[in-house]
Nucleic acid binder design. Structure first.
Lengths: 197, 197
DNA sequence: GACAGATACGAACGATCGTTCTATTCTCCA
DNA sequence: TGGAGAATAGAACGATCGTTCGTATCTGTC
């Protein structure tokens, strides 16, 4: 992976674009705006991607990598089962709080749920991977004796994602000061339902 | 309320725009596209609203009225307390399923959580009203003996909204065939936690 | 130090955006 | 029936969109 000059600017573009996209949407990204922000010419910037759609895809891929680095990998260092599920959840909350526009995947999920194409496809894959990771963590938790092995791990993952979406809504739109407390409460109640009795 | 000619076309515009906005977003709405769809001139259509932002606000108001008619009002005919909460929830699911682009409020919530202005303000008000309605229904349910009066109705409303958002994500992005069943399961589990023991 | 390829620029393309005019056409009441 | 005012149309505005093309500058190699 030779870090040539073009590769450096490409990454700089993608980093900036990823931050911007979380705030104004992947569709709201514009080549001109990006070029101006980064003091490049429109055509010079465009040449790195050949199309806006390719830029959008690469922005998603960049963000996915950041997500893995900041949420998934540190989460996997926690002991498997419930502690790992808690770590993943905590990291996700920190991720949502830490990004200026919130979680790009959550935003893009709604932006593209009606727009077929490679962006949507990639997004679906990312979300499935994340839900599968959560569900598998629950499965391991059942083997460890943390969770009731009779209950459906995919259902837990689905509900957990709903809690995260609820956090997004209350934190970012409503600016609810109790959002943290409400989210934790919901999380604990969910775990409790799935705990081995 | 004199139903003049201009008022008729205005409503026709708003009805079409509301459907379109749910699919491509409030920001994605364009005067030219609307004019073409409705066989009007751009300027003729524009004259009804004087600005795109005013159009967006009125689209939200139109949708709010539809929401009241199709979700809230029929819900209020159910007996107060738990039955009413169930009716509201069922109607909301039907509303989400019935609209081509999903729930406009959910979509716009994410589109505008970073964009200050009258559209965002109106949206916040709508969402607060809806959450308050849910919470008040729970409060009434506690008085009826359906729910535990020690538990926080606003928390239940918040979690209920998270379940709805989870439905949106699984149904519209992931096209999860089990979304209905998962959503119902989560809803029942939530009610169970809040039931008077 | 010259050459080759990668990288960036500037100008321009047609299309569309929201918005502003002026000029029609319609509607309805005196 | 004529005239006032509402409703729509048409043309044009400056701006921005994604994209293309030809040209210049840089970078690293022989």
């Amino acid at each position: 992976m030779a870090t040539t000059r073009g590769e450096l600017t490409r990454q700089a573009i993608l980093d900036h674009a990823a931050g911007l996209a979380a705030q104004i949407g992947l569709e709201g990204l514009s080549i001109g705006r990006l070029a101006e922000d980064l003091k490049l010419s429109k055509s010079g910037l465009f040449a790195h991607f050949k199309s806006k759609e390719a830029l959008q895809v690469q922005v998603l891929e960049t963000t996915r990598q950041q997500f893995v680095d900041r949420v998934v990998k540190p989460g996997l260092t926690a002991p498997r089962g419930e502690p790992r599920l808690r770590a993943l959840f905590d990291n996700w909350l920190a991720w949502g709080r830490g990004n200026a526009g919130g979680c790009l995947f959550v935003n893009t999920a709604i932006e593209f749920d009606d727009r077929p194409g490679p962006v949507r496809d990639l997004l679906v894959q990312n979300q499935r991977d994340w839900l599968d990771l959560l569900a598998n963590t629950v499965r391991a938790g059942a083997r460890e004796g943390h969770f009731d092995p009779e209950l459906d791990p995919d259902q837990l993952a689905h509900e957990l994602y709903g809690i995260m979406l609820g956090w997004t809504h209350a934190a970012r739109l409503l600016r609810d000061p109790k959002v943290e407390e409400r989210t934790r409460f919901a999380f604990e109640a969910l775990l409790d339902r799935y705990r081995r009795k």
